[in-house]
């Protein structure tokens, strides 16, 4: 498999990145080199091998659904780039 400029444009869109034409060209080359290296994994017979998501024997860690204190609004807004009426403000979502 090899990645084309078009793939890179598609992936950049999925990743919410704008790339300059130079970046597009650079990433196409570099991602191809990395993925070509990753093809090495195809040498491995993984038939019947279970995937490891992480090494602890944990799944679905549950806790009681209790009401707990959350951060006060002033603190939450301390890092907000823009705010109005105790809410985070963003540009229009719909035209």
């Amino acid at each position: 498999m090899s990645i084309t400029d078009k793939d890179v444009q598609h992936v950049a869109k999925l990743a919410r990145l704008n790339l300059t034409p130079e970046e597009e060209q650079m990433f196409t080359g570099q991602l191809n080199a990395i993925l070509q290296y990753a093809e090495k994994l195809n040498e491995l017979d993984t038939e019947g091998v279970e995937p490891t998501t992480h090494v602890l024997h944990l799944s679905n860690v549950m806790r009681e659904d209790e009401v707990r204190a959350s951060l006060p609004i002033e603190k939450v807004l301390l890092n907000a780039p823009d705010e109005e009426d105790d809410q985070i403000k963003v540009p229009a979502v719909l035209e």
């Binding site: 990743a15 990753a38 195809n42």
Partner: peptide, 22 residues
């Protein structure tokens, strides 16, 4: 970019799942 590609539709099994098995 690499991660988004590896997780994107059609490539998940070939890359991410294969790597988890490795």
């Amino acid at each position: 970019m690499l991660g988004t590609y590896a997780l994107s539709s059609g490539y998940y099994d070939a890359y991410y799942l294969k790597a988890q098995k490795a």
